[in-house]
Every structure is written in C-alpha cells, then in structure tokens.
Design a protein around this nucleic acid. Sequence first.
RNA 1: GGCCACGUAGUUCAAUGGAUAGAACGAGGGUUUCCUAAACUCUAAAUAGCAGUUCGAUUCUGCUCGCGGCUACCA
Length: 591
Amino acid sequence: MILEQTLKQSTAAIFKEEFGVDIPLDSVTINITKKEHEGDYTIVVFPLIKISKKSPEQTGELLGSKLLEKSGVVGKYNVIKGFLNLSLTDAYWLNRLKEISENNTYGTFPANHKKVVLEYCGPNTNKPLHIGHVRNMLLGFSMSEILKAAGYDVTKVNIYNDRGIAICKSMLAYIRYGNNSTPQSTGIKGDHFVGDWYVKWNEKAKEELETFSGLTGDFDEDQKQTTLFKEAQEMLLKWEAGDAETVELWKKMNDWVKEGFQVTYNVMGVDFQKDYFESETYLLGKDIVEEGLQKNIFKKRVDGAVIVDLTPDGLDEKVLLRSDGTSVYITQDLATAQLRHEDFNMEKMIYVVANEQDYHFKVLKLALQKLGKKWADGIYHLSYALVESPTGRFKSREGKTADADDLISEVLRIAEEKTKELGKIEGFTEEQAKELYKTIGLGALKYFVLRVNPYKKIIFNPEESIDFHGHTGPFVQYTHARIKAIMRKAGETTKGFETLLWLSAVERELIIHLSEYENTVQAAAEKYDPSEVANYIYTLAKLYNKFYHELPILNAATENEKKFRIALSNETGIVIKKAMKLLGIEVPEKM
RNA sequence: GGCCACGUAGUUCAAUGGAUAGAACGAGGGUUUCCUAAACUCUAAAUAGCAGUUCGAUUCUGCUCGCGGCUACCA
C-alpha cells in the first residue's frame, strides 16, 4: 500500500538526515503488528542497526520519535526489543475508510492493456469431468477474475482432447452394445453416456483377458493383446484416414459429450471465449519442427526422429516428431501455442494444468524459446497438485466419489439439508430457496478447493462432507448476509460520518484489513494464487463478526458513531462481495 | 537409480528470514431478555530428523527418513 511506501521513505529520509547514509527501501521491513502488541505497523529495526551503530532499542526509539514528529500520520509508538510498533492516528484510519468507500473501483486496477490467454479445463471427450477438473476449473476461472481485476485483458480458452484411442474405445463399445440409444433416449447426461461406453469397453476387455494366459497383470500392457484393442486401433486409423462413417459417429459422440460438459460449466459458472480441439491441431506443428531443423536448433536422430537436446538446460533429449513422421503430444502443443500467438498476440499465456505435466511445460517453453520466439517468455504453467482421497490418488475406477457432477449434487443436497435444519428459508419462494442452496453449496465447494495453495495437494475425504462452519465459504456468505440485514434496516438516511471519533481495537483492525485489499489482489495476480484472496476474505469476515458481536451498530451511542459503523459494515460487505467474486463465488442477501 | 514437489496440533489448512508458529474442524467449558448462534468466547494440542548460514530459520543450504509425481517415438 501507499502508506507502507511512505513509511519506508520517511525512514530512509530520517536515516539520511541522522547518519548521512542512503538506505535501500527494501532494507526497511514493515509488517502488520502482531495482535499481542500495541500498534498497527511494525518496522523491524535489526537490519538498520548496522548503520545507526546503536542498539536495536535505541535505534527504534530514535526512528519512532522522528516518525512521530514528521510523518503526520503516526500517533504513537513503542519499542520492544528490535521492533518499532507504530500506531497511526484514528483520523488517518477514518479518512482511509472514507477514501475507500468513495472509490467505486476499489480493488480494481486500471487497464494495463496487456493481453493474457488463459487455458484451463482441458477435458478428454471420452469421459465425464472429475474432481481434478473441478480444481482446474475453479483455479482457472478465479485466476481470470483476479487478473482482470489487476488490469489485464484476459481471454479464457479451453482445449479438448477429442481424438485418440480412448474415444475410439467408447465408439467401439457403443457400436457393439449401444443399439442406437442416445442421451435423449436414455435420459443420461451426454458426457456420462459416452463415459459409460468407455467403461463398458474396459469391462469387455477384461472379460476377454480372462481367456488369455501369460499376462503381465498390468492392464495397460495386457489390453493390447485383446481384439477389442486391435479393433479400437483400426478405428483410430480409419478416423485419421477420414473414413466418413467413423468421423460421423465420432462427431455425434463428441457433441453429446460437449453438451454434457456445457451443463456442468453452467452450474459451475465457468466459461470460455474460444475452444481449441486437438483433432484440429494434432497434424499441425510439423512446420515448427521443420523451422527448428532449418535453424539447426532441433536435430534429426539417425533413426529419423526429430529431437531437441535440452541436456544443457538440465533436462533430457526430447522427441518432437516420431521417426515415422507423425506427431507426438508436444508437437501439437508447439503448434497450438503458435496458433494462439497468431490468434491473440498475447503477452502472457497461462496453462492451468496439473503438476504431472511440469516437465512437459518446461520442455514446451524451452523449445519455443530456443526457436527465438520471444512471446514464449510469457508462457506460465499454473501447476496444481492433484486432489487425493485419504487412501491416495482418485482412480477413475473408484467411480462416483470423484465425479464432478456427483460432487456438485452432493454439496447442493447438503446445503439444502442444513439450510432447512436451521430454518433459514422462511419467506423464501421455492425458486429463491433453490437458488440459495446452489449459492451456499457451490460456495462451500469452491471455497474448500480455492483456499488451498495450488501447489499443495488437497486431501478430500468423500466420506466426510464438506464443512459449512468455520473457515468455509458459507461462513463468509453468512457474514455478508448479516451485513445486508444491517443495511436493510439502516436505510438511506445515514450516509457519511464525521471523522472525529475514537476507534476501538476491532474497528481499527477492520479498517486496516479493508485497506489491505488492493495488496491482496495484486499479490494474488503476481503469484497466480487465488488462495491469497480466499485467506484474505476469511480474516475479513472473522474480524467483522467480532466487531458485530462486540459493538452495537444500529444502536450505537451517538448518531455519528452509528453512521460510521454502518459505513464500515457497508464497505466490509462490498469488499467481501468483490473478493468472493474473484473466486467465482456468489454471496446471498439473506441466509 | 536420476529429476521435481511436498512433510506444521488428532484432522484440514496459514505464516515477504523476524516477536510467544496462526486458524478451522474435532475435544472440553462459556455466551441468546442484545442489529441473523452457519456467530462470538475460553482451554488443551504441532514445525519429520540431523547439521550448516544468520543477530534471528517453519521459511535459505546440505544430508537422512516419509509420501507423491515425472523419468514414452502415451496424452
């Protein structure tokens, strides 16, 4: 914040004056004062004693007295060991609150005209979305909101892995056992419908394997012996050859899947401005490989495969094109990256992809950089850890517990149950009640996922339902609803307040925290980390509840105090709503 | 084997190299003639281990142990 900057500068000026030394602003560390000590901000004086050549206490005392004298905002100070605790004047904080509440775009930064392309979700079209996609979508969507607030021009894109052997397995099982059924005829959501045929294929392949002997026990390996696998491979070849019948079925099934996904996207509240399809890009990329060969950056190995040698960068040799001239995964990613550069000419390209692919993205970025593509510097892999069950990684065969749609309906069900238990829906229409369950249920789920730092794995126990108390989405939502109740009662007659007030500790803490919001948005954008925002909101809500409990608002002793507390409540409500929006979470007016 | 993450109360998560490591859930106690008790409040409870750098280390370095991922002409 500006204030911290000011304090640093004042400190530097004082040191210049007292000791004739220019100190770098970075050497002044300022923290929020720990609550067991008196003060708002704390300057750590240890790093400064080398210059002052005095004890930490003396240095702190000197700096404190000078700041008190000159800064105009410091009301008092105390020194404990090497820590200088500064208390700013009540007037400063009251004016700060005014400033914030008069700023309609508080927490949103002016447009910086930098274009960001953000890829997230990246589903396969042979099975429904699972809990990993949920984390991905929440991170991706939230990151786009945060970057927008930080001033970036964000375009969200999706990538569909819509080709390959897996989808052929679904198609094959459908042809054999599907009897021309459809999602419509069966009432099954499209992505689940297609996923069921994928499961069917696996079942049948296992049945077939029972007739074999001399297996390795590794299904991935053994399945290759089955006729079902061979047929799927044949189908893939037909697809690649453009066989009309195969392509038609493929399109039909892909459309079902995408319709199904769209339903989930809508519930989750996520969207995309552009879709990319591997089926359209998997053949591209050879030009880029050729370009690399021309420039002598890539090499053709004796067996004919094209590789990039990344051993100087601490990585390995990586194959970019098979010896038979066909593409591998990274070939198309090189192409897709190039395509997006041409489509958007972006400054940054963010990939929200699980950390299993850390290596892949290192290679991708390096390969493009070696080709001299400057825009590749803007590639950032927002890597996140997997969601695991207490017993380890969710396997698709564990089925229901990891399915995204099941997870969502479960959390909505719990929201309904708990809300009814608490008798919170008096006066709600059926429609409004449904809306509330959705708000709260999704709020719980989204917050649960987003409050955790992306690089940390999330342990999710499907046996224990997601919590609605404590450090949760509903807690924050409840705080917002409380504030709105106050605002409804306060009406319009209480605008503005005089800054001649004495602040209590909670009020002061609340204003300080509100004034940290801008920093939080910026930090979250810089670190690509929505959990910064999630943790910020929790502290804000927690402080507000404390304030609400300790002090009367509508029944405050004086009219001015009342106006001030209403303004403080109002602003807290606004910031909660804004910040929750950055996480893609709605907040209710009543709950 | 090599490379990359991670390891904090019983559990799930916090902590720009700074003070007595914060919360939540769970456990045990308290608060409702008072603006929504999905709240507030008190108590017990943790840095995997060993060295090193530093005035100061959960944070940086090295080693050990543990867990996971990557190590494909799969995606």
